[in-house]
Amino acid sequence: MFALLVVIGLAMAFTFTNGFHDSANAIATSVSTRALTLRTALAMAAIGNLVGSFFGAKVASTVGSGIIELEVSADALTLVGAALVGAIGWNLLTWWYGLPSSSSHALIGGMVGAALAGGMTVLWDGVLHKVVLPMVLSPFAGFLLGAVAMLTIMWAFRRSSPAATGRRFRRAQTLSAAMMAFGHGMQDAAKTMGIVVLALVLAGYQDGYSIPIWCFLLTAIVLAAGTATGGMRIMRTLGRKIIELDPPQGFAAESTAAAVLYVASAGMGAPISTTHVISSAIMGAGSTKRTSAVRWGVARSMVTAWITTFPAAAALAAGTYLAVDMFV
């Protein structure tokens, strides 16, 4: 029981860091375009995450049973705990440097790294088709759809004055930010719920991978609390350092990113990165004005963080598992 409680505690700690690390995903564009005040945007993001978490069962199933194969044992719980430590460590490191990396891929990387260190089975087919391919394709989808949405807006409002168009889309961003927050809850709360259910199965407290109602509520509340604390370091990167957004660009980026999250969550059950999708959508929407408007140097730093997230979190988790196995 003690080991299970430690793993659940680590899962909630990861969820909290996920909240303040990824809150920028939902609100950075709305805050940077002054569509919403920071306090209003944070409250909206927290509520959206809370509600969206109840619609992510498919993603939770993928994380809980489609990445690694474990047998019921205390050692298996140690492995899950090590995976969470690796993910938390990478979240905190990238948050400190203001890099929008993926909490999702940090978690899955941690699971794979700990499993390899512990000699457990990694379901590589599931990792490839449910994680790696969506991880690669979703940023391209975000960039392309963001650009298409922005070009459509530019054509549809070509005869409107820029000031009037800005006012309309500043109001519309309230909706697109709420959509983005809901999609974030569908994705990121679900991943933690999958880990908690996996821990319950490994500890022998349940047989199947259904999610208990208390797990829904606890995860959603902790994610919302983490989101409400903000995440200004990463928010500055997404909202200002990549490109100076205007309200139509912000709306195009948020709405298309939310659409990608919905398809991946409800349609495919694929644990994709909200960070990758919204960042790419911002670049796509911004590049329609002129390619030089996007600060590609900052974008390259972000892509580097994206690429290194999976192996870095895996290494941290593997090291944690080996250290625990050696001294405990």
Rank of each mutant, 00 (worst) to 15 (best):
V328G: 15
T17A: 03
R300H: 08
G118T: 12
A313K: 14
A225S: 15
G66W: 07
G9V: 03
W124H: 06
I47C: 05
L144R: 11
R233Y: 01
V7P: 02
A149I: 06
M135F: 14
F216M: 03
A199Y: 02
T237P: 04
H276E: 13
I8Q: 03
L175Q: 09
W155N: 10
G118Q: 06
Y205T: 14
S73Q: 05
A147P: 03
S65Y: 05
G226D: 08
L42R: 04
A264Q: 11
A190V: 00
F54D: 04
G119E: 07
T256F: 03
H21L: 01
L175K: 10
A177P: 01
A147D: 01
M120Y: 13
W96V: 08
I67V: 15
G119Q: 08
T274L: 02
W95C: 11
D325S: 14
T78V: 10
I272H: 12
L202E: 07
L322H: 05
V277Q: 06
G86N: 10
T229P: 00
P248T: 07
G239N: 09
F16S: 05
V6K: 03
D125A: 12
K130M: 13
T304L: 12
K289H: 10
I242L: 15
A45N: 05
T121P: 00
G146K: 10
G166K: 04
V136L: 15
I213T: 11
L77E: 13
I195Q: 08
A266C: 09
V324N: 03
I27R: 06
S23R: 03
G286Q: 04
G110L: 08
M44C: 06
V196T: 12
A43Q: 06
F157T: 15
G98H: 07
V7G: 04
R240K: 13
G119R: 06
N91R: 12
G113K: 06
W95Q: 12
K58C: 01
M154T: 13
A264F: 03
V298E: 06
R290Y: 02
A314F: 04
G208V: 03
D125C: 00
S65I: 09
H105T: 01
V197W: 04
F20L: 12
R158P: 00
G86M: 11
A83S: 15
G89K: 11
S73R: 06
I307R: 02
Q173C: 12
A115C: 02
F140S: 11
T174G: 14
R170H: 01
